[in-house]
Simulated scan of single mutants.
Amino acid sequence: MANGSRQAAWEFFGAELKRRREEAGFTQVELGARVFVSGGYIGQFEQAIRKPQLDVAQRIDELLQSGGFFERAWRKLIDDKRYADYFAEVVELEGTATKICQFAPSVIPGLLQTASYARAVTIAANPFVTAEYVEEKVSARLERAHILKDATRPEYWAILHENVLGVPVAGQAAMAEQLDHIATLARERKVLVAVVPRSEGACAAMAAMLQLMEFDDAPPTLYTETSFSGDLLDDPAVVKRAQRAYDLLRGAALSPKASLALIESAAEDFRRCASTT
């Protein structure tokens, strides 16, 4: 589904929610209270500014007795084949987040990847797929990164383990380009990047890949991922533990200034190696 038609479908979702809510005699505040979100959040659903999570759509169905309409619509709209099933909702949430904090222990985060890096990672994980499949995945990943260029972009923190900087994914020249890209975003103050040095191994080892997201009018969420699956969680106790782990990682990391210098130094090393091979 193209972006334009997807947005139109979300607008229909919102209009239908408003119609059914009003028919049931609920204000936005009243409906929100019954499905455990704020009235402002309901208003943003109705204006297609934000997308509800699946459990909220299910509670709306139950309360408004809509026969599963909103759950079915949600599943249809979130079903983006460019992304793994467990990741499609994360992409939707990234578009409305006010703050995103990521920790990457082994691979550059998708929001920071260049086309060459994304292509190499995709092929490494899927060595027998078609070129069309690879380019679709790369295009989707680059499209996600557009949120960092918008005027309303979220506050974005990325903590990288130093090992991530040393692996020449896609080759020496491509890795230099990748690190230059991160350095440029940092210098333009579109992202804040910190590097956990190898000497802090114990601290970095206690956390897998994680992504924390905050919103204006919704609880924070946590996304964690392994090589084969991911989990999107909003349990307050779990999110709080993840936030504490992230704070500890941030405390173990180099300062943004020192991290930027390390990233630029690594890029220069790769560039020098590329020129001699």
Rank of each mutant, 00 (worst) to 15 (best):
F70Q: 03
M213K: 06
D216G: 01
A88V: 12
G201Q: 03
V29Y: 13
F26Y: 15
H181Y: 12
F36P: 00
R244G: 13
T96I: 13
L260Y: 11
A194N: 05
K81T: 10
F87Y: 15
E136C: 07
I182V: 14
I182G: 01
A266V: 12
A125Y: 08
E214R: 13
A183I: 11
T224W: 02
I123L: 14
L111T: 11
G4F: 12
L192C: 10
G230Q: 09
F70P: 03
M1I: 13
D85N: 11
G95K: 11
V35L: 08
G25P: 14
G67P: 01
A158Q: 04
E162S: 03
A2D: 13
R34T: 05
F87T: 07
L165A: 03
D180N: 13
A24H: 13
Q178T: 06
A158L: 05
R144P: 07
G40L: 07
V37R: 09
E16H: 08
F12A: 08
Q211T: 15
P52M: 09
T184E: 15
Q28Y: 02
V121G: 00
D217E: 15
G95N: 10
R250C: 10
F36R: 12
D61P: 05
Q172F: 02
L112N: 07
S66W: 01
S66I: 03
P220K: 10
I123Q: 13
A183L: 09
L160D: 02
P197Q: 00
M213H: 06
L63F: 02
E268M: 14
Q58E: 11
S106A: 13
F103H: 10
V239T: 09
H146C: 03
D269A: 15
L148M: 08
P168E: 04
L148H: 01
R244D: 15
P109Y: 12
A245C: 14
P197C: 02
R198H: 00
F215A: 11
I182W: 03
D247I: 07
D80W: 01
R72N: 02
E143K: 06
T184W: 08
R241F: 13
E23S: 08
S116K: 07
C273V: 15
S66K: 07
H146V: 10
S227P: 00
K76F: 12
S259T: 10
A145N: 00
Y133I: 02
V56E: 07
V134N: 11
Y133A: 06
R20P: 05
Q58I: 12
D247F: 06
F270T: 10
H146G: 00
T184H: 10
R21C: 02
A207W: 00
K190A: 02
S227Y: 13
P219V: 04
R59H: 05
K18F: 02
A218I: 04
E11K: 12
A245W: 08
R21W: 07
A266F: 14
